[in-house]
Design a protein around this nucleic acid. Sequence first.
DNA 1: AGATTAGTCTAACGGTTGTTAGATTGTCAA
DNA 2: TTGACAATCTAACAACCGTTAGACTAATCT
Lengths: 217, 217
Amino acid sequence: MNHPRHIKDLLYEQVARIGKAASSPKRLELIELLCQGEKSVETLAREAAISMKLASAHLRELRAAHLVETEKQGKYVIYRIANRDVADFWVTIRSLAEDRLVELRMVIEQMVSHPRELAPQDRDSLVRMARKGDAVVLDVRPADEFLAAHLPFARSIPLDELKQRLSELPRGKTVVAYCRGPYCLMARDAVELLRKKGYDALRLPEGVAEWGLAPVR
Amino acid sequence: MNHPRHIKDLLYEQVARIGKAASSPKRLELIELLCQGEKSVETLAREAAISMKLASAHLRELRAAHLVETEKQGKYVIYRIANRDVADFWVTIRSLAEDRLVELRMVIEQMVSHPRELAPQDRDSLVRMARKGDAVVLDVRPADEFLAAHLPFARSIPLDELKQRLSELPRGKTVVAYCRGPYCLMARDAVELLRKKGYDALRLPEGVAEWGLAPVR
DNA sequence: AGATTAGTCTAACGGTTGTTAGATTGTCAA
DNA sequence: TTGACAATCTAACAACCGTTAGACTAATCT
């Protein structure tokens, strides 16, 4: 053996940089937000409910790990995910966590415990129904995120406009609402509202990241 | 909104537990070792070149994140990976790191810079050749790891026995040597030795974890 | 030009983590 | 019983990290 120990240490150290980037709850939340589309620091801070200073510091870390990229647009600095693989990584680590951590499953259950039911998981059949017009796939995220990427055949009505724009939705058809993913509560609220108004509404707990559609560049 | 912030914080906090577990180089190395097969603390400490106390402390963390499980066998405590998904996670985070971090790619190049060439990547054709006997797939890891899981049609000659057991390898056939994965140097050394002895030898930089064959239970 | 806004950099704090040493538990072997 | 060994627990230190506040830069608006 030559100096293998030293080299090995370097290798694992580098991989650990990715782990470190993923070891903070706020940074994970920022990654998930960026999977919806590029955003300014201000927007990210607001949507993650943290100060801009803290957001800036965390984004700095993420950039050091080359997981996100920046572009200056006038007064604003726009952050985006560096790569589609980053979105896949977020989905992977999250589902590993759900698989391994009982505590996490408990929180999820409690979150959806006032239960609107879940949509059927089966992607192909959902797309088929949407294509034929048998179901309406409804994207309740902010309009710019819909623009950046959305599920096939989805139409966009942001959650805060839903009440006013109910008439755009055909009665008698199943409405499948989705948002940023399983940890986002917008689709849940949308389903609640729709059901109150007499619609047949389901929540799809997946979003663009889970479907492998996260926007890059 | 009810108390969504509080709940969301809990969710990301849980996922971050997995990230934390993956944020230490030593812990990643331990995970990789455990992907080869179950091992005692002592063995893990020796192979990761750390003290038993430190190994124990890191394994404690991994167990707290439910990534590994333990079983007491007499004097020894045997650790194993909790789930095949853990091995997949290790492969995922490592390839994301290789994709994103230039520094990591540089270390890898320098590691293989005295270059024995790499094997053809293509798994199906490798298996086909091995089945027909056109190539010998050689597992140079310790015998117990071969026993726990190995590539299809592989035969086992641990690196430290290779010199004595050269006669077992047929001349004139290509020998494809593999070990624990791309960060392991045993296959590299084996190829070096074999070439000196006149064999046509290649290194396959993948191991059982990369092939989705990591042993569980 | 002056005021405003978005964002970063620096410094500082308290809490957490990696590492080591020392004492302790449990198991096997003489 | 005694000794040896595997492994964990506890305590302690230094290094690191998350968070906040204050000063600073750069672009925009009036």
